[in-house]
Amino acid sequence: MLLKFVTSEDHQAALRGRKGLAGTKLGMDKDLTLAQQAHKLELWPLFKEAKATGKCAFWCATKLFINGIQICPSSSM
């Protein structure tokens, strides 16, 4: 299901609240283009590995940061 928010404040509040979905079968992410999805899918194993080893890993849109360093996929966009 896709949702369209009226204001950017509503959008940001919803994204901040998605942590409350942990442990459920529900999730929330931004609507990405096919190229962005492929980019994120390529980096996903690195994200999971970094989280499993206790590193600080987070996404900023489709950019992956591990310990403050942006990680680029082999097929950069």
Results as ranks from 00 to 15, higher is better:
M77S: 14
L41F: 11
F65P: 01
Q12S: 10
A38V: 04
G17C: 08
T24P: 05
Q70L: 05
L64K: 07
G23P: 09
T62I: 14
C60D: 13
K51M: 12
I71W: 00
E49A: 15
K4P: 00
W59M: 02
P45M: 06
P73C: 11
A14M: 09
Q12W: 09
G23F: 02
L32M: 10
C60P: 00
K4F: 01
A61H: 13
S74R: 04
T33N: 13
L21V: 02
M28F: 05
L34V: 09
L15Q: 07
M28K: 01
I69S: 03
K4M: 04
A61C: 05
G54Q: 10
T33W: 09
L26H: 15
E9K: 13
S75C: 05
G23R: 03
T7N: 02
S74G: 02
P73T: 05
G23I: 03
S8N: 09
P73F: 00
Q70D: 03
I71M: 10
G23N: 11
D29I: 05
L43F: 05
M77F: 06
A52H: 00
S76T: 10
K51I: 12
Q37S: 13
A50T: 07
P45G: 11
L64V: 02
M77N: 13
L15C: 02
G23M: 04
A52T: 05
L2K: 14
W44I: 02
M77H: 12
L43M: 13
K19N: 09
K40C: 06
C72I: 10
H39C: 06
L2N: 09
L26W: 14
A61V: 08
